[in-house]
């Protein structure tokens, strides 16, 4: 499975904007496979951490109610161009991933 994500972080003139998308099935565990009639096991991201220069600024706790390929956008103060933004996630099956970006 592709464990990929995209992050964009930029100075919007007032503060720093971050947009991220994580490619993940976010399977609820409630859906049934149409062919076999069996339940598809739940597979969803539980936690996402956003760090600015190594300091945690935002923690997202997610459940199966978050859409497939989750999207996250927020702004924060106190950042500047060139700073590092790192976003990492874990899912309920022990999978994890992450990516980092420089503020542009």
């Amino acid at each position: 499975m592709a464990r990929k994500m995209k992050i964009r972080a930029w100075d919007n003139g007032k503060n720093i904007s971050i947009k991220a998308i994580i490619f993940h099935p976010m399977e609820t565990g409630m859906r049934k496979d149409k062919k076999t009639g069996k339940k598809i096991p739940g597979h969803y991201i539980t936690e996402v951490n956003c760090e600015h220069n190594g300091k945690n600024i935002l923690t997202c706790q997610w459940g199966p109610g978050v859409s497939k390929n989750p999207f996250l956008a927020f702004n924060f103060n106190g950042g500047k161009k060139g700073d590092t933004i790192k976003i990492s996630w874990v899912d309920n099956q022990g999978g994890k991933g992450g990516a980092s970006a420089k503020i542009s």
Partner: peptide, 8 residues
């Protein structure tokens, strides 16, 4: 630090 405005 985070502006209380979150999109998902």
């Amino acid at each position: 630090q985070v502006v209380p405005s979150i999109t998902g």
